[in-house]
């Protein structure tokens, strides 16, 4: 199968999944035990909630229509980036979520560069020195580092680097300096996981016959290592691709500690305010990103490894 038709097929496979995801996101919000109209009125701090007001709100927001029609309307609107308006402020959701998503994406991409770079470096070093002191200590350290709650590490770093030494800003997103602390914290908590994947993938490749045959043919150690790397990173590429949406979805705590104006902070605030349209948009956007990156990772994998193109 050539690459073009593989990509088309892979995208066609993702579409039904996207529909199911949108449906679940929509149903989830409707599962709430609260009457949405009451939530809206509460969020707008209407002093007296009367039945009449509830009926009015229901009509205004279309909550009285049949479920299917509500869903279809919502879906069509979503595809045009119209996620409704915030219950609290009345602003369009996209005007809040859009910029926040961009900010989170910036943080995620910068962190991912460090996570991926460090993981490959450490993974390769440890695999080459399997069982030696370097390998053992890096691995041991990685278990402890991944066990550190990110917000705790963040607090310690803020306390030491920003307050005591006054080197870096404690919060906000003003200059490149603001990136340093959040990026360090995210990198520390994820590198441990991804470096282990690179390491084990290297190790399993080192035991393959092609490595033996390469060596037996007199290839230099550098060339043999390049072959091992090429094959190990193939596995790693798909994992790294998935790292981006995973980090994107879990910057929630970090953003709150560093007052980063991103999706995580917006979503926590919306949860506390019960601002459903924002929560809905947040879940939908991240789930779609997840599926998108999953598709991209499959495509990259197939491009690198022709064997995978056969079965789909």
């Amino acid at each position: 199968m050539d690459m073009g038709s593989y990509i088309v097929k892979r995208i066609l496979l993702a579409i039904p999944l996207l529909f199911v995801i949108s449906l679940i996101t929509f149903v989830l919000i409707n599962l709430s035990l609260l009457d949405p109209a009451v939530v809206v009125l509460q969020a707008q701090e209407v002093p007296q909630i009367t039945d009449e007001l509830i009926a009015q709100t229901n009509e205004a927001l279309g909550f009285d229509k049949p479920f299917v029609i509500q869903y279809v309307n919502w879906l069509i609107a979503c595809m045009q980036f119209d996620f409704g308006s915030s219950y609290v402020s009345g602003e369009p959701v996209w005007s809040l979520v859009g910029p926040a998503f961009l900010n989170t994406l910036k943080l995620t991409l910068v962190s991912s560069v460090f996570i991926i770079g460090l993981s490959i470096l450490l993974g390769v070093i440890c695999a080459m020195r399997e069982g030696r002191a370097v390998d053992k200590s890096v691995r041991g350290l990685s278990f402890v580092l991944t066990a550190i709650p990110s917000y705790w590490l963040a607090a310690i770093l803020i306390w030491y680097l920003s307050v005591k030494l006054d080197l870096l800003p404690t919060s906000g997103m003003d200059s490149f300096k603001s990136y340093i602390l959040p990026v360090i914290v995210i990198t520390v908590s994820y590198t441990g996981i991804y470096f282990r994947t690179v390491r084990s993938s290297m190790l399993s490749n080192m035991n393959e016959d092609y490595v033996l045959y390469g060596r037996a043919s007199g290839l230099s150690e550098r060339k043999v290592t390049l072959h091992i790397l090429r094959n190990s990173l193939q596995v790693a590429v798909s994992i790294f691709c998935m790292a981006i949406p995973i980090v994107l979805g879990s910057t929630v705590v970090i953003e709150n500690v560093f007052a980063w104006p991103g999706l995580g902070r917006l979503s926590v605030r919306s949860i506390l305010n019960r601002d459903f349209p924002i929560i809905q948009a947040y879940v939908l956007i991240l789930a779609v990103t997840f599926v998108l990156f999953n598709t991209i990772s499959d495509v990259i994998n197939a491009a690198m490894n022709p064997r995978l193109r056969k079965d789909l």
Binding site: Y210, L212, Y213, G218, S220, R230, N305
Partner: peptide, 24 residues
């Protein structure tokens, strides 16, 4: 030793399928 591998001592492996780098 490496200079002798391949040139003087040549190996033929059991499983051809896995003896070549699968992605090249």
């Amino acid at each position: 030793m490496r200079r002798r591998r391949g040139k003087n001592l040549c190996m033929i492996l059991q499983n051809g399928m896995s003896a070549f780098d699968p992605s090249c």
